[in-house]
Design a protein around this nucleic acid. Structure first.
Lengths: 143, 143
DNA sequence: GTGCTTATATGATCTATGTCATGTTTTTTT
DNA sequence: AAAAAAACATGACATAGATCATATAAGCAC
């Protein structure tokens, strides 16, 4: 439970969109079905991403969600920041207010080391970079 | 937010009790004040630990919570298992049902490494082991 | 044994998160 | 221009987690 459910949905949907051909729009129902996520809820999450200009959308017939080239090149961590904020990577694992590297809690170093790891991975990998991994069957977004 | 708040409280309270002299009982109000946790809520959490025989308690005047030698030697991970269950260490970071090492999600490997390490640290360190670190001022449980 | 102090048990309330439902606006098609 | 299809916006509802509150039971001191 590192990320909120909204954030998990956001990451999966974004990676899903990254698999599409450039500018191919996908309707919310299709995304929701493919990823096994409640459509109305995912809709709400994606709206937030659209507002933050991390995902694009088009209304009307044949409309849907899609990623521009510019958006594809943004790091995945932007999605996390948009939904869960930056705090997820810094909050003390024991909930201690003044926990820091100078005054660490007993779990601080272990938790920091590996949270940093995820943070770096999400910062270095663009949204687009997940595409090749998924295409090759190396990793999966659903069964 | 790796652990639930209840679990954070449980870990902190247990480490706190580990600092006491053998068999010294501490009332809930004192623990709650020192750790800056709502007393009634912490009370509930500690009751669970008592039921699971991870913490001991005594009723009546001069009663309170304490740790036996046997309890001091148990690994910290028992606390996590008692409150949050074993699942915390295994649930997919993107909430994908069938995520596994054989069919990993894009974040699987990064998250796995992160959590395994914490799991190992909590498994290898006994409740008592936190005492020396805290005594020496190396780590802290509150400001 | 009486009274006080403490844990124990239970449940009510609050809050945040997640889900569902409805209506509105925009765009395309005919 | 009308109709349909889609995102957009808003709010109601459900659930779980966290907090607060009250009553009960057990043990100690005198």
């Amino acid at each position: 439970m590192l990320f909120s459910k909204s954030c998990e949905y956001a990451l999966r949907a974004t990676m899903y969109l990254a698999q599409m051909e450039s500018n191919e729009k996908v309707g919310i129902k299709v995304i929701a079905r493919d990823l096994n996520i409640p459509a109305d809820y995912l809709n709400k999450v994606l709206q937030t991403l659209v507002q933050q200009q991390l995902v694009s959308s088009a209304k009307g017939r044949n409309g849907g969600f899609y990623l521009t080239k510019n958006e594809l090149n943004k790091p995945l961590i932007n999605i996390v920041h948009a939904i869960d904020g930056k705090e997820v990577f810094y909050r003390c694992g024991l909930g201690i207010k003044n926990c820091s590297s100078k005054k660490p809690c007993p779990l601080h170093n272990d938790i920091k080391a590996y949270r940093d790891n995820i943070k770096i991975a999400l910062s270095n990998n663009s949204i687009a970079s997940s595409r090749s991994q998924i295409d090759s069957g190396e990793v999966f977004l659903s069964k």
